[in-house]
């Protein structure tokens, strides 16, 4: 490799890096766009299911969180120069059934969906609050 060829190779390498950065940015953007579709009304209400004269639509709560960050840096140690860049991201989506919309020839009604596990957990937490308070108040103070 001659000295004249070297800059060309470096330019090509830089172009590749730029192309990779662009493609990764595209991936991030498309992922973020997909994430934003959870704000659509169709993410909450399912497709209607018809059975004879009755139609049922299930409704769920949807929560989605997404984050991404990138960074770069460079430094010099004597004659050596160095640099790098990196990025990372993550997200979570969850949904929970809330109600069922039932349409019959007699009318439309909204039936709630109760999550018994969540209710038991809340009841146990509430009982725990009270038991801890009770045990703390009944315990004789130290140093007497």
């Amino acid at each position: 490799m001659t000295d004249e060829e070297k800059p060309v190779v470096e330019e090509e390498a830089q172009e590749e890096v730029v192309a990779e950065d662009l493609s990764s940015l595209d991936v991030i953007q498309s992922t973020f766009d997909q994430f934003l579709t959870t704000a659509n009304v169709n993410a909450v209400y399912a497709k209607p299911v018809r059975q004879g004269d009755t139609m049922v639509i299930t409704a769920a709560e949807v929560f989605a969180g997404f984050g991404f960050g990138i960074g770069e840096g460079s430094g010099q140690d004597g004659d050596q120069k160095g640099g790098g860049s990196g990025g990372g991201g993550g997200g979570q989506t969850f949904s929970r059934p809330v109600a069922v919309v039932v349409c019959t020839p007699n009318g439309v009604s909204v039936q709630p969906v109760m999550d018994r596990t969540k209710l038991w957990m809340a009841a146990l937490t509430a009982a725990g609050f009270m038991l801890v308070t009770l045990s703390k108040m009944r315990r004789p103070p130290r140093g007497r």
């Binding site: 991030i28 959870t38 909450v44 709560e61 989605a64 997404f66």
Partner: peptide, 11 residues
Amino acid sequence: GMPIGLVWNRP
């Protein structure tokens, strides 16, 4: 300007 956010969608 950043790909950071949250969406809470409910009926």
